[in-house]
Amino acid sequence: MISVDGLTRYYGDKRALSDVSFHVKKGEILGLLGPNAAGKTTAMRILTCYMPPTSGAATIGGYDILSQSMEVRKITGYLPENPPLYHDMVVNDYLEFVCRLKGIPKDRFSIEIDSVLEKTNLGDERSRIIGKLSKGYKQRVGLAQSLLNNPQIVILDEPTVGLDPKQIIEIRELIKNLKGEHTVILSSHILPEIEQTCERVVIINDGKVVAEDTPENLTNHLKGIERVFLQVEGKEEDIRSALNSVKNIKSLNIDSVTDGIVKVSIESDVDLRKKLAKTIVTAGLGLVELSADRFTLEDIFLHLTTKEEAA
């Protein structure tokens, strides 16, 4: 449904996107994940024909974004990062204006508007002035706008930013309901959101795709690694030499030393907890705390994105 092939975009000398490629199947929800300024918005703006790529190509629903941009726009609904709202308009008038822009026949205006207002739970607010609505409601009006004309493809740029937890859950539910009927691309820098709503994740950092998989696979990928946190009372050198005798330690980090208590984090392929406890106790050091931790998508995200930065 959406195929992106080697998109690159420069802003002056600065490269915002470099050789980004991915594909989205019909009815799928794809998450674009990345820290701020990673290039998510740029990618989405290119896909929605807001601006062209410096090089590379993309097709949406079979239409080329450059040569058939009007066709692409007809089948795409887009919610930019800042909802494009006219603050002194009434919700209903605004949606009617967007209906006209999208070329919906006049006799279908009220059906379309009623249906998006119902989807976004905005029925009671339809005659209010947009500027007077709360941020959450403004976001919903923006979302309602993108859903007008029932577009095959919906592109949402950070749809839940600035909302309260209850609203976030509502918007997530709404996005999940779009699945199947619509093909959705969703960007976010918040992981649980992607984890809960998306079937596939593309992680972008510094303008490049660093990983692409299902959320489960990405987590499994690093699941084999066990992480253990230790708090030990004693001297740093003693602890180091004691722990060096333990086999299978992949990495060992002294996080901090406060009041004679040393915080250590250890990564390994196997569960080392028993062995570590035994080593520390037999070395005559005081074991204050020992805990294990699994990798979450958040760690993978940090792992991938910070590794990129170091390289």
């Binding site: 007809k74 930019p80 800042n82 494009p84 999208k102």
Partner: peptide, 14 residues
Amino acid sequence: RAGTVELLYTTPIM
């Protein structure tokens, strides 16, 4: 200023 150009540029209007 209001960012509504993003709406105008991404809907089928020339």
